[in-house]
Design a protein around this nucleic acid. Structure first.
Length: 895
DNA sequence: ACATTCACG
DNA sequence: ACGTACGTGAATGTC
């Protein structure tokens, strides 16, 4: 068995990876996607090839590349974008850390190094794999030298392999012929001139006839086409110069002792540290098997089920005055503690003080929770991860202040981490340990895969203890670090006075849930079915065949190919069949109108009628999850099910709201802010005209129309008002003439005029929006009125689209975020007031600018009054906050 | 796992 | 030349 050498074209693969892997960066802002992609390709190669030797060649000067999108565009090559450029030195660092030899030699291109090494190795009897994204290397292919070209196909990478025979099979020329082909046709991207008048087709025909360039010139008179023949003769020098340029050198003065390229231990300590720094979490797994580095933490974890021990521990915690804790229970929903799979508590009250208290023997769930609850009542500072799920245990002995949901003794590291960077997709304890404590801990998945906590405790106690103890430790140790960072970012108050209190409110709302009439919901769904079936038959008949109307692919083919409707391709995968496209066709094509109706009805059926029914629990109620750490702007989100997108805009959809009802002897009180975002804009921009407009208490869109279109208020037409309204919305979204023109179906130019007029009317709004973008570029983030931050990394992008997006986000986030802050304040105040007055009414839902309260009939007047009051005065802005309030026997009637 | 569509604010 | 309005979540089809 001969030895094997793998050669990698460094810049080329890095470039492929850069465009193939979505943008990634570590917490320091260093882009890492190309490195990540490169490593994935590298690891895949190593597994497949198991080579003895490997080396990566780089050009000395960073080369330019053909732009992915426009490979043939005028021969210009895009310079390497900054996001890729900064990754090159780090990539080399990573390779060196893994003991991989890199090659770069002044005066030599990577191609020449690779070609030379490949041929040399072949001569010495090795098998060679040469990996590049560039087809130029195909000229090196032989029986022993395999050229491998990774292609990013969708999510995964596929590799095309070429031995000499494969090159011939695919391209009809030998590897050597490749050079001649290029010499004749040229390659603008590589600055190879080629022979004028000779393109790909002619070049290929000439070679088929004459095989080589030499032979061609020996028989140049036999070339039939006159123009080509003359060009060939006139440009003989150019042809040979091109041949030279196209030839990859296989005899360059490369100095390499194979031993330097021999692979050794890849998973070194240095590499480990680098991977950590780059935050390649799923690549770190490769190191785990190598080094079972026991984190020093595990030795400190004290496990006991002895009552006296446990009592001592709680005493010690009380004495310490603060601790990190973890409630060891798996629960999707926040519930009473008896209903959870509680299996113990973990506590940490010092660097060396970590205890795990499994619920068994005398340590009952109830006892443990009441001890924890006592700590809370005693004013001990408590830090945990995801406090919403800890509340059942934490509150099991009642309240400290019955009517206050704010207490500075509670600290949720999850919420803190979210505030510091709301853009992340998840905030796992291991991420917090890494980012805040620079400590690697084993993840739950690593410790016990998919086992539930209870199963883990039974089957793998050691791992369970490690998980539990570590969790408490992270909560303990990360608290001061996060707290300090919040302080530095000016978000301490936001955290203490808005986020922590609102977590309590959300917990109560989830626990309470909302009553849904199951049978009425069922009946609603049934009523849809007949019409859906009718439409389905009708659509299939009109189309002349049966197909799946729900498949955009099939639908697109039927409409735009079979039936020949106009409406060009819009998506990557085919025709767009989105509603706004179909609506334009509906007038002329009855089938399209039917499809739209079908879409609407099936949506109602599957998402709402059937979808909601699955979430009705035994108490007849739906308990949604309100997520506090999801959105980039500070809004709450709702899942399982989403109760923040229940239909409203169409009458048929809106009827679903009739199945949401209050319990017996209760009714619904519903209040929503009137244009809170525009009012927020008026306040934070300080625009006198806009503030004045709101003080006049008249229809804001009509006022805007009047001012923008220079029309007396009474004479504003409906169209003018509609346009003004669209502009008002557009401003909040981060206006662009394109977006507005789309929305109003007008030209960009007209839209631009509207915007100009708008800014002339409200000049300080423009100043404000410009300043947001300016500040965001300066600081990397924008803030709300209450100090909430939204980082905007897109502003640094070299991509125009991304940057424009960043600018719109910079304009929108302070507005949307401030409105979200105000709503949270209102929720806290409403909750506290309900408790202070010992009322039975309870908050049910929050829908961004709307609150729904399940109201005791006896309290109806009082609740309406306090709800409106607390919402209106949640913030005192330079314009008043107006609230529309309704009551009713169900949600439909209460709006 | 990803894309498309559509429900809400 | 580029190709979008901001913020979400669920269902469905396709790979």
């Amino acid at each position: 068995m001969s030895e094997k050498l793998v050669l990698i074209d460094g810049h080329s693969i890095l470039n492929r990876a850069f465009y193939g892997v979505p943008d990634l960066s570590n917490s320091e802002g260093l882009h890492t996607n190309a490195i990540y992609g490169f490593l994935n390709i590298l690891f895949k190669l190593l597994e497949e090839e198991k080579p003895e030797y490997l080396t990566v060649a780089f050009d000395v000067k960073a080369p330019t590349f053909r732009h992915e999108m426009y490979p043939e565009y005028k021969g210009t090559r895009k310079p390497m974008p900054q996001e890729l450029h900064e990754q090159v030195p780090v990539m080399k660092q990573v390779l060196h850390a893994m003991g991989i030899r890199t090659m770069e030699q002044p005066g030599l291109e990577a191609d020449d190094i690779l070609g030379t090494l490949a041929k040399r190795a072949e001569k010495e009897g090795m098998d060679v794999s040469l990996v590049s994204g560039d087809r130029d290397l195909l000229q090196i292919a032989s029986d022993k030298i395999k050229i491998r070209i990774p292609k990013t196909k969708g999510a995964r990478t596929e590799v095309e392999d070429y031995y000499a025979a494969d090159v011939e099979a695919k391209y009809g020329v030998t590897p050597a012929g490749f050079i001649e082909l290029k010499a004749l046709m040229g390659d603008t991207a590589d600055n190879i001139p080629g022979v004028p008048k000779v393109g790909e087709k002619t070049a290929s025909e000439l070679l088929k006839q004459f095989q080589t360039l030499d032979n061609l010139y020996a028989h140049v008179e036999e070339v039939t086409k006159k123009a080509v023949r003359e060009s060939l003769i006139a440009n003989k020098d150019l042809a040979y110069l091109s041949l030279d340029l196209a030839t990859i050198r296989i005899d360059s003065p490369v100095v390499l002792d194979w031993n330097e390229a021999r692979l050794g231990e890849l998973y070194t300590e240095d590499a480990y540290q680098l991977f950590r720094k780059l935050e390649f979490k799923n690549l770190l797994g490769r190191f785990e098997q190598k080094e079972t580095k026991q984190d020093s933490l595990t030795a400190k974890i004290h496990v006991t089920s002895d009552l006296a021990d446990a009592q001592e521990i709680f005493e010690a915690v009380k004495k310490a005055g603060h601790c990190g804790f973890a409630v060891l229970s798996d629960q999707k929903k926040c519930r009473k503690i008896e209903e959870t799979e509680f299996c113990g508590l973990a506590l940490c009250w010092g660097e060396e003080q970590i205890a795990v208290l499994p619920a068994e023997g005398f340590l009952t769930a109830q006892w443990l929770c009441s001890q924890l609850s006592d700590l809370y009542l005693a004013g001990v500072g408590l830090s945990t991860f995801e406090i919403k799920k800890a509340y059942p245990a934490l509150l099991s002995n009642g309240e400290k202040d019955q009517d206050s949901c704010g207490t500075k003794t509670l600290f949720d590291v999850l919420i803190a981490a979210y505030l510091l960077n709301p853009l992340k997709n998840d905030y796992e304890p291991e991420d917090i340990a890494k980012e805040q404590l620079d400590r690697m801990i084993r993840t739950r998945k690593q410790l016990f895969e998919k086992l539930s906590l209870k199963e883990a405790y039974a089957q793998r106690p050691e791992e369970f203890y490690e998980y539990a103890g570590t969790l408490a430790y992270v909560c303990y140790a990360a608290m001061p670090v996060l707290s300090q960072k919040l302080e530095e970012a000016g978000m301490q108050k936001l955290f203490d006075e808005i986020e922590m209190p609102v977590s309590r409110v959300l917990y109560e709302m989830e626990k309470e849930g909302v009553l849904v009439r199951r049978q009425e919901l069922q009946a609603y769904g049934d009523a849809l079915v007949d019409r859906i079936n009718e439409l389905e038959t009708k659509i299939h008949e009109a189309a002349g065949c049966e197909f799946n109307i729900n498949s955009p692919k099939q639908l697109g083919e039927i409409l735009f190919e079979k039936m020949g409707l106009k409406g060009g391709k819009k998506t990557k995968t085919g025709y767009s069949t989105a509603a706004d496209i179909l609506e334009k066709l509906a007038a002329d094509n009855p089938i399209v109108a039917d499809i739209l109706e079908y879409r609407g009805l099936t949506k109602l059926k599957s998402t709402y009628a059937d979808g909601l029914a699955d979430y009705i629990e035994e108490d007849g109620r739906i308990h949604t999850s309100f997520n506090q750490t999801i959105t980039a702007t500070g809004r709450i989100s709702s899942t399982e099910p989403n109760l923040q997108n229940i239909p409203m805009r169409t009458e048929l959809g809106r009827l679903i709201r009739k199945v949401f009802v209050p319990r017996d002897n209760y009714l619904f009180t519903d209040a929503d802010y009137s244009q809170i975002e525009l009012r927020v804009l008026a306040h934070i921009s300080g625009d006198e005209q806009l503030i004045e407009a709101y003080k006049s208490d008249a229809d804001i869109h009509r006022i805007t129309a009047s001012k923008v279109f220079h029309t007396p208020f009474e004479e504003v037409t409906d169209l003018q008002r509609r346009n003004a309204k669209a502009v008002n919305f557009g401003i909040v979204y981060g206006i662009s003439s394109f977006g507005l023109s789309q929305d109003l179906s007008i030209t960009r130019k007209e839209a631009a005029t509207y915007i100009e007029q708008y800014f002339a009317t409200y000049p300080q709004v423009k100043t404000f929006l410009d300043k947001q973008v300016e500040d965001a570029k300066q600081n990397g983030y924008v803030t709300t009125l209450y100090g909430r931050r939204r980082p905007i990394p897109e502003l640094k992008s070299s991509n125009f689209m991304q940057r424009s997006f960043g600018e719109r986000v910079a304009m929108n986030s302070p507005i949307q975020g401030t409105a979200a802050d105000i709503m949270k304040l209102a929720m806290i105040h409403v909750w506290e007031e309900l408790h202070r007055r010992k009322l039975n009414s309870r908050l049910s839902l929050q829908i961004h600018d709307e609150l729904l309260i399940e109201t005791d009939r006896a309290e109806a007047t009082e609740v309406a009054e306090l709800l409106k009051d607390k919402m209106k005065h949640a913030a005192e802005l330079s314009v008043s906050l107006e609230v529309d309030l309704h009551t009713g026997e169900n949600w439909y009637d209460a709006k």
